[in-house]
């Protein structure tokens, strides 16, 4: 289990990184490497060049500005998780990060790396989807922002074009009056989710749901919005009956995957619905407390 040989380039700036990416047929960005290195060890990935961006100063920054948390591609999960400002501004993110693997993985793993890797079972792409975040991408043609819903295009595939790289993620901060929750089912702590959900509920003055966002992960080829659940909740008083109905509709239209090793599609659907119910309850409670 040794990776195939590769060239290693340490890029201190984004232009340096782009130049290196453009200079080889099969170059890949190395940030934390916590997903990439294991598949390289199995030789499921054999890049010719690894472009290490983890030390580029401009990618090492994160900041909250105008209701948006911007996280550079070199920022590790653990740095975010332990940062007092992030903990205060985006507790949902911190809770989501805590579900990823183990602290020793999060110490190297990056938020942007998780987005770019696009593992269907990963938490962060679903968080970005649920909260309408954006991925900032740099390429030879300059920079562009890709909405979360358009970024992940399939299992382990994204809207990144050849020669492009993720430079930052923009995460809108949950607003007042909304309540959010994240939850997942895993056999052991840190294992990939058999089903996971990030959800948010906004309540109006009358206690009705003014908007609901439900994103599922670990159940389909990509993170998916649970539109069925959202439609049930929109405009409804989120009482037990409404939450039951929303949970029951969460998998409508979702093409659920399954496997023999971890869980069947049927299990993901059944347990996932119960998970959605539990998370919605928590989100509604949080929304009520925040209002």
């Amino acid at each position: 289990m040794k990776p195939a040989p590769f060239e290693y380039v340490r890029a201190d700036t984004v232009p340096e990184a782009l130049a290196a990416l453009g200079g080889a047929d099969d170059a890949r960005v190395l940030a934390g490497g916590q997903s990439l290195v294991p598949i390289m060890a199995l030789r499921l990935a054999t890049p010719e060049v690894l472009v290490d961006v983890s030390r580029a100063p401009e990618l090492r920054e994160h900041r909250s500005d105008g209701g948006v948390l911007t996280v550079g591609a070199g920022v590790t999960d653990r740095e975010l998780e332990l940062d007092a400002g992030v903990r205060a501004a985006h507790p949902l993110l911190v809770r989501t990060l805590s579900l990823i693997a183990h602290p020793e993985i999060r110490a190297r793993g990056t938020l942007c790396g998780s987005l770019a890797h696009a593992d269907p079972a990963a938490e962060l792409p679903a968080l970005l989807l649920a909260t309408d975040g954006e991925v900032e991408v740099a390429g030879d043609a300059g920079r562009r922002r890709v909405p979360a819903a358009e970024f992940v295009t399939g299992p382990f595939t994204t809207a990144l074009a050849d020669g492009e790289m993720v430079v930052a993620a923009h995460l809108p901060l949950p607003g007042p009056g909304s309540g959010w929750a994240v939850d997942e089912i895993a056999r052991r702590p840190g294992d990939y989710a058999l089903a996971g959900v990030v959800c948010g509920v906004e309540l109006d003055g009358a206690g009705r749901c003014a908007g609901a966002r439900v994103a599922l992960f670990g159940v389909a080829a990509t993170p998916v919005r649970a539109h069925g659940a959202e439609r049930v909740l929109d405009g409804a008083v989120p009482d037990d009956a409404a939450l039951d109905a929303a949970a029951a509709a969460a998998f409508d239209g979702v093409d659920v995957i399954g496997d023999e090793v971890h869980a069947s599609a049927g299990y993901r659907r059944r347990a996932g619905a119960a998970l959605v119910r539990r998370a919605l309850t928590a989100a509604v409670r949080a929304a009520g407390e925040g209002a």
Partner: peptide, 19 residues
């Protein structure tokens, strides 16, 4: 393989020496 790098516990098998 857990070791401490710059104060953080990390997996020694998921980090290249050059890093």
């Amino acid at each position: 393989c857990t070791v401490v790098v710059d104060g953080a516990a990390v997996r020694g098998c998921l980090m290249f020496a050059v890093q």
